[in-house]
Amino acid sequence: MSKVRKAVIPAAGLGTRFLPATKAMPKEMLPIVDKPTIQFIVDEARKSGIEDIVIVTGKSKRSIEDYYDSNPELEDNLRAKHKEEMLKLVQETTDINLYFIRQSHPRGLGDAVLTAKAFVGDEPFVVMLGDDLMEDKVPLTKQLMNSYDKTHASTLAVMKVPHEEVSKYGVINPESEKEPGLYNVNNFVEKPSPEDAPSDLAIIGRYLLTPEIFDVLENQKPGKGDEIQLTDAIDTLNKTQRVFAHEFKGTRHDVGYKFGYLKTTIEYGLTHPDVKADLRTYIKDLGAKLSKEDSAAPKTTKKPTK
């Protein structure tokens, strides 16, 4: 059985939900306080024991490569000023086996994964999406790797979501539980309407896949949005080899939309040693101010209708 050593991080999307900022700045480089979102993903991969990471980029994404490159001038400046802690933070971003592939045209997540075929080779690998930041005692990617050690099969991370939100996700149709929290899957449905959804278990941004997925992707026809959908390819794979779904019970931060990004920034800020005290005071003061304004606002009474 091959060891899971490699991770693919798709980062070629246009980031339209964060325009105009993402016209010139990758959404993966938007900071959560002082750390770009993509670094949370890379850190999770490293903590899980992943050895090699490829980031699939697109146009206007060069700053991701620059971020993970060395900056001798900056390092010399920090060293001369004896700013050792800052120097360590800067150097940590270059101490990674990191590779980059360009996706020439945005043809969907499935196509982005397919561009990494030569990098992955004939090995199982993980796919980690940058919109989902995961928190748990054991990193979610490591949880999937632990499941693979037992099943030797592709395994996706799923999480229960409100039923009215299922149309935003790929959703599983569970067949049975192999063990608590690990589902045999009958089929996968990409972004179903709430009326047609087979469950509330939505696929979130972590996948552990066997290399046979590439054969499927090479022959996969475009699906929703006229794109090559990874969920459709996984559904096809499930017809020839078992694919499992692992239910994640930790905390998921969705930074793929404005409000989710703001919530995550605040929550992370409340744990950050440099800003947590000031931020907590600010939130309390702001809450008191808003309550005062609400109390002072004139009350409106609704006239009875005849």
Rank of each mutant, 00 (worst) to 15 (best):
S295N: 11
R5D: 06
L230V: 01
R46V: 14
S48M: 00
K306P: 11
V166M: 12
Y99W: 11
G49I: 06
K88Q: 10
L201E: 04
K299L: 13
F188K: 09
E28W: 01
L87E: 05
T22M: 12
K263V: 04
L87H: 00
K35A: 06
V275Y: 05
V127T: 03
F214I: 00
Y282D: 12
L89I: 10
I53K: 02
Y67Q: 04
E179F: 07
S60V: 11
T300K: 14
L78F: 11
I9S: 08
L74W: 03
P194D: 07
V189C: 08
V113H: 04
F244E: 06
D66M: 12
R102H: 10
L217Y: 03
M25H: 15
S48K: 06
D136S: 14
K306S: 05
L30A: 13
L182Q: 05
Y148F: 14
G205F: 01
L262Y: 06
S63W: 05
T231Y: 00
T265D: 08
S147N: 12
D232C: 10
V158K: 12
V171I: 12
P192T: 07
V126R: 00
G13K: 08
D122T: 00
P106W: 11
K27G: 07
A233V: 03
S48T: 10
E51P: 01
P198C: 11
D34C: 06
T151Y: 01
D111P: 00
P72Y: 05
A7L: 04
D285W: 00
S70M: 01
K142I: 02
S70F: 01
D131R: 00
Q220K: 04
D43F: 02
E175R: 14
I96P: 06
T155L: 07
P36N: 05
E84W: 13
D254K: 08
H163M: 11
I55Y: 00
I32T: 03
S199T: 00
P10E: 03
I53N: 12
K221F: 01
V113P: 03
E92L: 03
M29E: 09
V90H: 03
P10Y: 04
K276E: 12
S48E: 09
V243S: 09
E123C: 15
K263W: 07
G58F: 07
H246G: 08
Y207D: 13
H152D: 13
A24R: 11
M86S: 10
V8K: 07
D122S: 13
N146D: 14
V33Q: 08
T265N: 12
P10A: 06
L144P: 01
